[in-house]
Design a protein around this nucleic acid. Structure first.
Lengths: 209, 209
DNA sequence: CGATTCGGAGAACGTACGTTCTCCGGCGAG
DNA sequence: CTCGCCGGAGAACGTACGTTCTCCGAATCG
């Protein structure tokens, strides 16, 4: 190849990154981050160790990359799911998020929210991880916020409703893996329905006595 | 002392267990379980290493003990908090759980639910930990269930409401550490109020169209 | 065909862990 | 005072980690 910055080597490096992120993401999610060694990732990905450290400077970098990748995957998955319901009413589209949760919870590999797990395991001791977690949660919250927008509420009421739905969704995500029951998503959906109805019928801002 | 099974040695062993659990609980909670070594626990507790392994067979045992101890501490804390509001209405007593959450979230050391964190870090790979987590969450749920009982609903409606409040409370517990805002508890309380009102006014069982 | 460069496999290195063992000083018994 | 036991401090051991280095075979180029 004549151009070293664009040649086959660069493409291979991207392939390595993809293989590593795919393998590492699954392993970290299944067993936790600290419990999975780089050698396990190497074996699962099939990428030789030398290229592992050419693709990622360190395990920390790989961890952050897996979270960023998962964030993108989730965003795409939610988008696909909602696009398939583009004809539904605004209310049903908001509630569809909980149907999406239900499908996720029912997966064999489901073990809660990888971001919550990573934050719980590493917390603020790993600043880039904490940042990725916050970015993901902000993104998820803004998905809800945009769906709520379609309900035609005031901006304040829409903010409040999105925040509440966000709390409920997170509650389902953390409850489902512990009880092992995907039905948690249905219960959360019922909660969401009550909240949406309360918000669309009445002003439903603060919490008066 | 004349009775070796009741003498000073046995009391010392209990003291050691208490010191170790106190030190380990704080460290595990602050930094995660795998990130804290036994030597750090030893240093923080002041218990010599030999007595550490006399008090607990292994780190796994210590981890489980810290979770059991935290469970008992939380149960006592919630009980105290609710006892101080024994004159309130049943609805306010249910919602008081979220005031308790608010106080908890505002603590400097707050870093989410230790049980959720432990489950996310170790998951089902550590069976005794997973069991302790499930036991704790069952206990917390039953606290809510007993409070809901005072509302005078049917058993089915009370079960459903308790489950929903449980999801909302868990959502607040996982959202607050990521955003860093104790106000999440107030928002969750507002959600809970809507749910309680919906349950006490209408039958509010399943999720009809 | 010979020389050189590249990359893969895994050995090697430094560190840190969980756990056990050794040593030594103090204290009670005779 | 001497002996023996107990417990504390921390060295030691085996393992496993993250990361780097060494060696060797294969492919490329002249």
């Amino acid at each position: 190849m004549s151009d070293p910055s664009r040649g086959g080597a660069a493409i291979d490096a991207d392939d390595d990154r993809a293989s590593l992120v795919a393998a590492a993401s699954e392993l970290f999610y299944a067993h936790g981050i600290q419990a999975v060694g780089m050698d396990t990732v190497r074996a699962a990905s099939g990428v030789p160790l030398k290229r592992v450290y050419r693709a990622f400077r360190s395990k920390d970098d790989l961890v952050e990359a897996t979270l960023r990748d998962r964030d993108a995957g989730i965003a795409a998955s939610v988008r696909r799911f909602l696009d398939a319901r583009s004809g539904d009413s605004p209310t049903e589209r908001v509630l569809a998020v909980f149907d999406w949760l239900h499908e996720w919870f029912a997966e064999d590999s489901f073990r809660g929210c990888a971001f919550v797990n990573a934050f719980g395991e590493l917390g603020d001791d790993a600043a880039p991880v904490a940042e990725a977690v916050r970015d993901h949660k902000r993104a998820f919250r803004s998905v809800l916020r945009r769906l709520v927008d379609e309900l035609g509420l005031s901006a304040d009421d829409a903010d409040a409703l999105a925040e509440r739905l966000y709390i409920v969704a997170n509650g389902a995500m953390v409850t489902a893996p512990i009880t092992g029951s995907p039905a948690t998503a249905a219960e959360a959906k019922a909660v969401a329905r009550v909240l949406v109805e309360a918000a669309t019928v009445r002003p439903a801002s603060g919490a008066p006595g």
